[in-house]
Amino acid sequence: MGTWLALVASLNGLAAGAFLLGAFGLLATRQMLGCVRFFRLQSLALVASIFLIAIGMRVPDLIAVALLDLAIKPLLIPWLLRRYVREELFRRREIDQLLNIPTSLVIGLTLTLTAYFLAGVLPPAAGAMGNINVPIGLAGLLLGAYTLAVRREAVPQLIGIFAIENGSLFAGIAIAPRLPLVAEMAFPFDMLIIALVIGILTRITHERVGTTRVGALATLREGAPK
């Protein structure tokens, strides 16, 4: 039994590594399609971790949560985005970032280190195998927020939000694995509605403003010319 648990725990460590890799990938890729792929990778790592924690800590409810997350995050959300956001936007490279990618990676590294220290403020994980989830989830949250801040395109910004949510869940699952099932079921559905609504909003933005470079949206401010 001991070796079995050790195996599950080390697999969870692998999932955490993949999760962090996904977060850095979101930061580093210039292709919009690449953004979606790294988001998929990150979500799959999240699903794997939920599944492993369900086994390791014996919380059968979490298996249902993992299945629902599997259906919604890596599959349904990218499909919805493909459906609502024009194809040509997906083929594009993003050239307009606030900071260049090497600088972003260095900042990302600093954020990850910060997350390790900040994790001490949060309550510890419910079981020893989840210990790694708290700092990695927090790093995912910070990296997602940073991605959101430096990206200037609609789709990467939206994925930045999902990355923040992924980070919250990745840490949260380990801290409170026995959250009521109804609530845990509500989270992914919420994300689904967000993807739908913002996908449509992206299309409208493209139609009305002629670009999805949302960084260029700056007509509303104090003292703006009429």
């Binding site: 997602g144 923040i164 869940l169 801290i175 409170a176 959250l179």
Partner: peptide, 22 residues
């Protein structure tokens, strides 16, 4: 656009707070 991005981002951060609360 500005409304949705900033407030949904806030929601995603608050989610961790609610889980910690549990």
């Amino acid at each position: 656009w500005k409304y949705s991005i900033l407030t949904i981002m806030g929601g995603a951060m608050a989610l961790l707070g609610f889980i910690v609360l549990f």
